[in-house]
Design a protein around this nucleic acid. Sequence first.
DNA 1: GTGAAAGCGCTAACAC
DNA 2: GTGTTAGCGCTTTCAC
Lengths: 336, 336
Amino acid sequence: MKRLDRKITLRDIATEAGLSTTAVSKVLNDKGSTSSETQERVKKIAERMGYRPNLVAKSLKDNCTKTIGLVVADSSHSFLGSVIKGAQEEAARFGYNIILANTNRNRETEKKAINLLLEKRIDGLLLASSMLIQKIDKPFLESLGIPYIFLVRRSEDKEDAFVGNDNIRGAFDMVEYLIKTGSKKIHFLNMDKSSTSSKDRLKGYIKAHENYHIPYDSRLVYNMRPEIEEGYTAMREILERGEKVETVFCGCDIIGIGAMEAILEKGLKIPEDIRICGYDDIEFAAYLRKPFTTMRQPKEIIGVKAIDLLLDRIQNVQEKPGVVMLKSELVVRQST
Amino acid sequence: MKRLDRKITLRDIATEAGLSTTAVSKVLNDKGSTSSETQERVKKIAERMGYRPNLVAKSLKDNCTKTIGLVVADSSHSFLGSVIKGAQEEAARFGYNIILANTNRNRETEKKAINLLLEKRIDGLLLASSMLIQKIDKPFLESLGIPYIFLVRRSEDKEDAFVGNDNIRGAFDMVEYLIKTGSKKIHFLNMDKSSTSSKDRLKGYIKAHENYHIPYDSRLVYNMRPEIEEGYTAMREILERGEKVETVFCGCDIIGIGAMEAILEKGLKIPEDIRICGYDDIEFAAYLRKPFTTMRQPKEIIGVKAIDLLLDRIQNVQEKPGVVMLKSELVVRQST
DNA sequence: GTGAAAGCGCTAACAC
DNA sequence: GTGTTAGCGCTTTCAC
């Protein structure tokens, strides 16, 4: 694959047309005033020579790259894949591009990635399921000098811009549904304590208990990383301990997949012996061994709204309210 | 979020240090010769002022952005999510970034995306499940003037660089397994005829039949888009027609999910009444109602190898062989 | 060991 | 309506 001859520049067109680069630039950008005769001629030449504006040069001049950094925990997780898609397509609508970085939930990887993005002069930053949500990370993020928005997982500083679903309400709705349909003792396989989403889902869980006068028992609540394996192990241990299990609310579908696995392995029936449900409605929740009751997060919309909010901050000085709480939707399937 | 004060430039550091920008540049890049005293001083100042090199300026000078375009059909599909992850992380290892674009399997969207990427001066292009695989698309791709590599879905021109799994062999292995374990009549719910992967999987399917002296019956082969819905509809129609179905090989797991749905809905048992299997081993194949026998594609490795090949072409003039065929692995689960 | 000058490709300000 | 100039931030000669 030989490197093709040098790219065509404005200067090449100018020479060809016997004009200045300025004139050509004006024509191609429909700015300033040029004779319609010139316009036609220049456009034709540009077309013929296969001219492509060099946005790197433009970026240098404008001090703006029309590029947004999107840092995600793991692009192979289908949940984040949808968020990425929503963000990328919405950005494209406005002529923006997305540079993607995976962090694997590692703080250092994430910081390094952000630093590189900043050197590439991204105009703004989206942090999806970021690890940099603590107070201690604020100085780093502020030092970036560009707008940034948290997605999916909220930062500890409630002033920070955020787009995601309302976890308190979502968890409340789910537990309320479980209670109303006969459950009294609800095990909760929640995500890590450190995660804000997990804290909020616990709040919703507790609130629903209070609301229906069911005493809250913290011994029913477990915390784990959102991995299939972890859900499996936790559920298995609970069952092997001989504990009476009636209903299991999983903090996310991934944990739910593992938990379901453990339940079925024990020869128990879903939902006859144990009712189980999750949160997120990942792509395959409907196609698990038992189609999964879950809260459907508006995944692509999260990406879309995040871009809208970010572009607003990039383009305007004044601030719109910075927290967008989208509603999740209860999807009832056979697992409950 | 007030736009922070202008970013620190080499000039700022130079002024502060009482040196020229040249000197500072040399220090910060460990090039040319500078006194160790100067080096230390400059580095300290840069550190203190929070200097971040402006890669846009460097790109303009170097005529190289250390950025790669990755065009995918749909980043929310878990298969491509893994490919993206592999590619992004491998690129990062070499200081490259990935700009991601979704095409939604639309030729025009894809072309438009590529054009924008080119204006941003990407150094190379990765096309994952591209629509631009026909002979007719070659001139467009060649006009880009940068190396490009097809991923996952191969282009019609066999000279084009490609990284993916060996579909002929994969399909052969699967069908061979089915035959050896007792299947004689194997329905094949393949993907669109237009797709190269689909053609190759059909070749493998036929080859295995020949190899085991089972007559090939084209009436058992169906083609459809890789959507759950399509697999469901196709399978349902076959069953409603009262056709005797013994074994179903699905061209991809997504189709398989739909087909399985239709089979179970009919009250048929898997694998007792019908054996069914797929291809790809998407994230959730193991957690379907019946864990799915499938061919595991080396998804992340595809991304990794593609970057390796692309960087090689970006950095060197001479060509390495341009086709990387990775082996897929048979994963036997309960559905067969 | 250090610096002045030129240039990457583009555009905005300002002549003419 | 068109051209000249300067400058975005960086690096690379080539002097000194």
